[in-house]
Computed example of a mutant assay.
Amino acid sequence: MTTPEPTPAAPAPDAAPVVRLGYHGSVEVAGRIAALAGPGRAAVRTSQYDINDPFRGVLAGELDVIVVKFSLREPELACSRVLTTDARAAVLGAAHPLADRASVSVEELADHDTFHCPGALPGYVWDEVVPPYTPGGRPLRRRHRATDVAHMMELVAAGAVHLSLVSLADVAPPGIRIVPVHDLPPAPVALAWRRRVELPAHVAEFIAAAEREASR
């Protein structure tokens, strides 16, 4: 008696394409950009990249596109138009003398020690995050070094000041205050991807849709 051949399984439907979107800091900003792009035909999977080596994942092909803030001039990366902004803020420990203010001036932050540029983040980007000088000409003292956001928050709780972005309120632990800085412009937020590499169609569509909606 012959054993019947097994019936081949029906082929599984193609999985929906995925946009691998990298971000740093608050995932809310990445979500804002994904909302601009709309549902499209692809899912969006977010993952946080290391600010000490921010472009490694996208250049290695592990991420399709990353959220970047401020101006980027990297020869290996292409950038979208500005899609949204992130307001400036001081990250302060609850016991800091400025922590209970509704807002602060960057001129006041010149009285306090801030942070050095982390890792391989380009220095020209950090000059926009923590300007060497305030608009009034006072130097901002970059004296603290942090290995990651958690370490930075520990140093802030101990008295350091981080000149950063309002969106960090989403990841600030108890005892940390995010106080708006009223005399610095907000950071422009865009997407970046590998230059001279053909993007998958669903990734190109995601970027184009976000740009179209941002321009409305």
Rank of each mutant, 00 (worst) to 15 (best):
S80Q: 06
S80K: 05
R81T: 15
V82L: 05
L83F: 08
D86V: 07
A87Y: 09
A87K: 05
A87W: 06
R88Y: 05
R88M: 15
R88W: 07
A89F: 14
A89D: 10
A90L: 02
V91R: 07
V91A: 14
G93E: 11
G93Q: 06
G93L: 05
A94K: 07
A95D: 15
P97D: 14
L98Q: 13
D100N: 13
D100P: 02
A102K: 10
A102I: 03
A102S: 11
A102G: 07
A102D: 12
V104C: 02
V104H: 04
S105C: 11
V106A: 12
V106M: 02
V106D: 15
E107N: 07
E108S: 10
E108W: 04
E108I: 03
L109K: 02
L109I: 02
D111F: 02
H112T: 03
H112M: 01
D113I: 02
D113G: 12
F115A: 04
F115Q: 01
H116T: 01
C117L: 00
P118D: 03
P118T: 02
G119C: 10
L121I: 08
P122K: 00
P122I: 00
V125G: 01
V125E: 05
W126R: 10
V129S: 03
V129L: 08
V130C: 13
P131F: 05
P132T: 03
P132D: 05
Y133I: 01
T134P: 11
T134K: 05
T134Q: 07
T134L: 02
P135D: 07
G137L: 06
R138C: 07
R138N: 04
R138H: 06
P139T: 03
P139C: 01
P139M: 01
L140T: 00
R141F: 06
R141V: 11
R141D: 09
R142T: 09
R142G: 03
R143W: 13
H144T: 14
H144Y: 11
H144M: 14
R145K: 06
R145C: 14
A146E: 06
A146P: 12
V149H: 08
V149N: 05
A150T: 12
A150K: 09
H151Y: 10
H151F: 12
H151E: 13
M152C: 14
M153D: 14
M153P: 12
M153G: 12
L155Q: 14
V156W: 06
V156N: 02
A157I: 02
A157Y: 02
A158K: 09
V161F: 04
H162W: 14
H162M: 14
S164M: 06
V166C: 13
S167V: 02
S167K: 01
S167Q: 09
L168Y: 09
A169Y: 10
A169V: 12
V171M: 03
A172N: 05
P173A: 04
P174C: 07
P174T: 05
P174E: 11
G175R: 08
I176Q: 08
I176A: 09
I176V: 15
R177F: 07
V179L: 04
V181W: 04
V181F: 09
D183S: 12
L184K: 08
P185D: 08
P185V: 01
P186S: 03
P186L: 05
A187D: 00
A187L: 01
P188I: 04
P188K: 13
A190L: 14
A190R: 13
L191M: 10
